[in-house]
Write a protein that binds this DNA or RNA. Structure first.
Length: 484
RNA sequence: GGCCCCAUCGUCUAGUGGUUAGGACACCGGCCUCUCACGUCGGGAACGCGGGUUCGACUCCCGCUGGGGUCACCA
């Protein structure tokens, strides 16, 4: 049997970390077994589904490299295009007496539910309408035509339903605890539980991989597969992803969507690696490339307990992958992040590569890389007041000026070695230690007290810009002391 | 409340009856050093509790406690 797994996001918002992880495991499982990965769009909630979030989800998936064998743009894989199929199946169930019309109003049901809760009883539908007679040719509900009822699935009331879950193990449910759930609303539209079962059956899904919040649905869906005449697929329920406070990961925990990380300059390899390692392991290994993930993946090595999303570990992984890229690659990849800040993108790729090379050990994301490159990219830097106060003092103006002069006299290659030689000469003539000169120079050139090695910075900046900034600093010091 | 699930360092986890309980992130300290990083060396840090089973339990069983999921004309 060929493995066919699926991922069925709803296009009602951004692709969520917890959600995409279930999708990733479904994808890894399919790829591991050389099977097919099906992308289905659960867009039955027409109110909240948008084209924009659909496009965003597809982009995220492509970015992560989670390619699908079947799915969009083929309309067949959009749940809304299958409502006729869902309605026919409901009709079939009705004719076979495996479903029945329910005339209870939403208000009545709500009242009963509240009463049950008050009395600490299970708030389950009391099956008032089950067993009542109804014509064999009963039509599906349509409120607008006066057919104001819903269709419920007649769940077996005896026996039990077992789920042999690939990650959770065997779970047994009493059928008497299973609700007669609504499968067709009073407006005639099919409900998720029916649509999902039918789609999984029709698309011949062999393994349903999803979040474990679906566990309670599983025995009900198995009964529906059976009633519809299908063999139920295998199930693998992944534990939830939690926020740092132990509650399910949500927007209030900060960045939790794939797109947020994509736009912050994270690498897809890092995201993939992190997501896979959250709830799954392969001995002590922490770093996995995509092919290794596919090769090693299995549900046996998946944990059963929920995991806390750790943004710092993701960041560490991202740093790891950033270091894997060459400076030339990073120079290209950082451009969009420079543009986003409204800064000019250098035309000289080799120069940008040189600048990136000095920053790559310091930045953990492409976004940080762009941020740190600020003083290379712009000449209108505003030095930090604290740094100026601490390092740009009157007695350093002379050494700074001398350094500028000697630097401008360097002939030939403006290399780090040449720059170092100039420094050593200035240091000796003023009896200064490197630290005493380097920090003021750093403030003069970068505006702050933190930067790559000072020789590297000067080499990247070039003779002209370096000298200009040193002169500016000297002027600033003299201006300040003149005012004093 | 009913049903279901879960339980090793702060976090992600390894571990399948006998280990000094391992790794990673984070944290702390040393080294390197022109700042910050990187790197490197080292450190602290966990089997929720109580019963069994066993010569021996982190590992198996039961109970407790704690945490979570779910009970819609949402998906």
């Amino acid at each position: 049997m060929t493995v066919r797994s699926r991922f069925a996001p709803s296009p009602t918002g951004s692709l969520h970390i917890g959600n995409v992880r279930s999708g990733l495991f479904a994808w890894l499982f399919a790829r591991h077994h050389g099977g097919a990965f099906i992308l289905r769009i659960d867009d039955t909630d027409r109110e909240r589904s948008t084209e924009q979030s659909l496009q965003e989800i597809l982009t995220d998936l492509q970015w992560l490299g989670m390619d699908w064998d079947e799915g969009p743009p083929d309309r067949k894989y959009f749940q809304t295009s299958r409502v006729e199929r869902h309605r026919e199946a409901a009709l079939q169930l009705l004719r076979e007496r495996k479903a029945y019309p329910c005339y209870c109003s939403a208000e009545e049901l709500e009242a009963k539910r509240k009463a049950a809760e008050r009395e600490h009883r299970r708030p389950m539908y009391d099956r008032t309408c089950r067993g009542k007679e109804f014509p064999a040719d009963l039509e599906l509900p349509d409120k607008s035509k006066g057919r104001n009822y819903t269709i419920r699935f007649a769940m077996p009331t005896e026996g039990e339903t077992a789920v042999d879950d690939l990650v959770k193990g065997r779970m047994v449910f009493n059928n008497s605890d299973l609700d007669d759930l609504i499968i067709i609303r009073s407006d005639g539209s099919p409900v998720y539980n029916l649509a999902s079962v039918l789609d999984d059956a029709d698309f011949q899904i062999t393994h349903i991989v999803r979040g474990d919040d679906h566990v309670p649905n599983t025995p009900r869906q198995i009964q529906m597969f059976l009633a519809l005449g299908f063999a139920p697929p295998a199930f693998a329920h992944m534990p939830q992803v939690l926020g740092p406070d132990g509650s399910p990961l949500s927007k209030r925990h900060g960045a939790t969507s794939v797109v947020a990380y994509r736009e912050s300059g994270y690498f897809p390899e890092a995201m993939l690696n992190y997501l896979a390692r959250l709830g799954w392991s392969h001995g002590d290994q922490e770093i996995f490339c995509k092919d290794e993930l596919i090769e090693y993946f299995g549900f046996a090595a998946c944990g059963k307990s929920a995991g806390v999303f750790n943004a710092e570990k993701l960041l560490w992984l991202n740093f790891h992958y950033l270091k894997q890229h060459t400076a030339a690659e990073l120079a290209q990849q950082v451009k969009p992040f420079i543009a986003k800040r409204g800064w000019p993108i250098p035309g000289d790729d080799a120069w940008l590569e040189g600048a990136v090379a000095t920053l790559r050990e310091r930045a953990k994301t492409l976004n940080e890389l762009a941020e740190f490159a600020s003083f290379y990219l712009r000449d209108d830097i505003e030095p930090e007041a604290k740094a100026v106060a601490k390092f740009l003092k009157p007695d350093i103006s002379e050494p700074l000026k001398t350094l500028a002069d000697e630097l401008s006299n360097v002939n030939g290659d403006f290399s780090e070695a040449a720059i170092q030689a100039v420094f050593e000469h200035v240091l000796a003539s003023f009896s200064l230690k490197l630290g005493q000169l380097a920090q003021p120079v750093r403030v003069a050139l970068t505006g702050g007290t933190v930067s790559p090695g000072i020789y590297e910075v000067i080499a990247v900046l070039g003779k002209q810009r370096t000298v200009a900034r040193l002169h500016a600093a000297v002027d600033r010091i003299r201006g300040a002391s003149a005012h004093a």
